[in-house]
Simulated scan of single mutants.
Amino acid sequence: MEKILKNCFDTFLTNLIPFESEKELVSFQMGAIFSCLQRSFSFLELCEAGSFARELTTIRGYSSRDLLAVCPEKIFPWSPADAIAELKNVLKGKFPGIKGIYNNKCCVKIPLGNTPFETVQIFPAIFKGYMQTTLGMKPYYSILNPEGVWTYISPKAQQDYLDAIDIPRDGMVRKMIRLLKAWKYYYLVPINSYYLELCIAKYAKSQDYMIYDIDFKAILQLLYDTNLENVKDPVGISGYIKPCNSEIQKQNILVKIEADLLRATIAVELRAMDLAECLNLWNTIFCKRFPINW
């Protein structure tokens, strides 16, 4: 029964991998975005950030492409709101045929289609140099956080930190991240994806090996028991990472965690006794998208 359960999780994870067409859609437009920003802002580079930068944690149909528009510091002397507004105006001028280009306090969003994965999020960024981290010297940037305040980030340090935990565990950490992200996206759970990754990586450091269902349940338990407390950036660049944007969101997340923690607990108890019901519970946890035919 355990082998069948593992095969079902493996199949589900395969179904979460983005199609190559999803990656190519954005890559096709990156050249135009690059030339546009280079002309307007003495632009230096487009730097990949987010799930695509950390590799193997993206979710088919849901993960957007996050790009840092890295410019010299003198290019963004204005207020954060002015920086975002100027970036949006330039991009709207370049892509007049794309309707719905909009911005929030931290980035400009370009909808290349109707689904989340067809959205490109462009963050104005300033290259600050190299900082000593727990993993050695790493390049870091200043970007705007969801509150519209300049903060530091290092995509390279984030990826290296995840690699250091994931590789010795045969890729299971990234697989667990994908499972939790699928749960997040399918039910629109408003939890910060990077926060989720850090919590899973922190948990995994104490595990020599991981088993899909048992550790999924354990991670939900950890999130619930810690009451979604802020997590300190383990590489020492970004300060403390919040789980979400408001206290109301936090309470809603905890309600969802509590409900699915109960389901996951029962599913783990049934894994050796009633596989059919066990799989039905996982199917509920993953919004009726988990394979149950075996």
Rank of each mutant, 00 (worst) to 15 (best):
K3E: 11
I4F: 08
L5N: 03
N7Q: 12
N7R: 15
D10F: 11
T11Y: 06
F12T: 08
P18Y: 11
E20G: 06
S21H: 02
E22G: 02
K23S: 13
V26E: 13
Q29F: 15
A32Q: 15
F34K: 14
Q38Y: 05
F41I: 00
F43E: 11
A53I: 09
A53R: 03
E55H: 05
L56Q: 13
T57W: 03
T57C: 12
T58E: 05
R60K: 04
R60P: 03
R60E: 10
R60S: 14
G61L: 09
Y62P: 00
R65T: 13
D66Y: 04
L67A: 01
L67W: 12
L67H: 02
L67P: 03
L68P: 14
V70N: 09
V70R: 11
S79R: 10
P80Y: 04
P80H: 02
A81Q: 14
A85W: 12
A85Q: 15
E86N: 15
N89M: 10
K92F: 03
K94M: 10
K94C: 10
K94L: 06
I98M: 09
G100Q: 11
G100C: 06
N103D: 08
N104H: 02
V108A: 00
K109Y: 10
K109F: 12
P111Q: 04
G113D: 08
T115R: 12
V120P: 05
I122Q: 09
K128N: 14
G129S: 04
T134P: 08
G136M: 07
M137F: 11
M137H: 10
K138D: 06
K138E: 14
P139K: 08
Y140H: 13
Y141F: 11
N145K: 02
G148T: 02
W150I: 03
T151D: 05
Q158P: 07
Y161R: 04
L162Q: 03
R169F: 00
R169C: 00
M172R: 15
V173Q: 12
L179K: 09
K181D: 00
A182K: 05
K184W: 00
Y185M: 06
Y185D: 06
Y185E: 07
L188D: 11
V189N: 05
P190I: 06
P190Y: 11
Y194H: 06
E197N: 02
E197K: 07
C199P: 01
I200G: 04
Y203F: 04
A204I: 11
K205M: 13
Y209P: 07
I211F: 07
Y212H: 02
D213N: 15
D215I: 03
D215K: 02
K217P: 01
I219V: 09
L220F: 15
L220A: 12
L222K: 14
T226L: 08
E229K: 04
V231S: 01
P234L: 01
V235T: 15
I237H: 01
I237F: 09
I241R: 03
K242I: 00
S246Q: 00
S246K: 01
S246C: 00
L254M: 13
K256V: 07
A259W: 08
R263W: 12
T265K: 03
T265C: 04
L270G: 01
L270E: 01
R271D: 12
R271N: 08
A272Y: 11
D274S: 04
E277S: 13
C278N: 03
C278P: 05
C278A: 07
N280C: 09
L281W: 05
N283L: 08
I285D: 07
F286I: 07
K288M: 06
R289Y: 07
P291C: 04
N293G: 12
W294E: 08
